[in-house]
């Protein structure tokens, strides 16, 4: 038996909006520690890892580990029926073939339940090694989204270079080229507006902008985003989900032929 009650139901709606275009079907894994998901896009270039820790739920009951295969388009359709202020409860029976989403309005005067069929998904789980990253950039998530969107009007790929001077995003295409440099700044008033660069050694990697643009759909989940990079390794683009967990996107770099 599984019963997870999330008071801030809008978080789940936002999570689905952030991942449903990248991944079609995914297994949600439920254990004592939390509600999680790991899935790759169909071309195996990008991976999303979601964790909602059990202590972030108002009520969390998971009698045994459960993996529930869901079509994210259909799940998103159902969650769209929840109000932004609604409390969402996810319920499932062990070995059942469906999951129920229950939506309660804040004043408890409206309760809805939506039952969705589960599916068998043969998904591959990848081990992601713990890595010391050469450079970690924390910046406002809206700024990162803006840069990715702007540069994708010029080119298809972006070179992200971190040096002691800052982080540089560069692209080029048929009509020309563009560079955006963000320098480290410390905002006294608002930590969310800071750009903070931790660098052990300079790193420069090339990525497809269309994936980064897809990741930025998670911007509504967090005011800040963290980019972790090492030479010749996938970048990690992480959005913290207030008090409850994170969503991490991994993207394989492009390599010069």
């Amino acid at each position: 038996m599984l019963e997870l009650r999330l008071v801030q139901g809008s978080l789940l709606k936002k999570v689905l909006d952030a991942i449903k275009d990248l991944v079609t079907d995914a297994n949600f894994d439920c254990s004592e520690s939390g509600f999680s998901l790991q899935a790759m896009d169909s071309s195996h270039v990008a991976l999303v890892a979601l964790l909602l820790r059990s202590d972030g739920f108002e009520h969390y009951r998971c009698d045994r580990n459960l993996s529930m295969g869901m079509n994210l388009t259909n799940m998103s359709k159902m969650l769209k029926c929840a109000g932004n202020d609604d409390i969402i409860t996810i319920k499932a029976d062990d070995g059942g073939d469906s999951v129920t989403f229950m939506f309660e309005s804040p004043s408890q005067d409206k309760v809805s339940d939506f039952e969705m069929k589960l599916m068998d998904i043969d998904s591959e789980h990848l081990g992601i090694p713990e890595t010391e990253y050469h450079a970690i950039v924390k910046m406002p998530s809206a700024e990162f989204a803006r840069i990715c969107r702007d540069l994708s009007t010029i080119g298809d790929t972006v070179v992200i270079s971190v040096s002691k001077d800052g982080v540089k995003f560069s692209t080029s295409g048929d009509i020309g080229s563009a560079n955006v440099v963000c320098r480290q700044n410390n905002s006294v008033d608002n930590k969310d507006n800071e750009t903070v660069i931790e660098m052990n050694e300079p790193v420069s990697l090339t990525f497809a902008l269309r994936y980064l643009n897809s990741f930025t759909k998670a911007t509504t989940l967090s005011n800040t985003v963290t980019l972790s990079m090492s030479k010749e390794l996938p970048v990690v683009v992480e959005y913290k989900i207030a008090e409850i967990g994170h969503i991490r996107f991994y993207l394989a770099p492009k390599i010069e032929d």
Partner: peptide
């Protein structure tokens, strides 16, 4: 030109 690598190149199935 540049070519896109796969995540399978970096992460191993568990």
């Amino acid at each position: 030109g540049s070519s896109q690598t796969s995540l399978r190149h970096y992460f191993v199935a568990t």
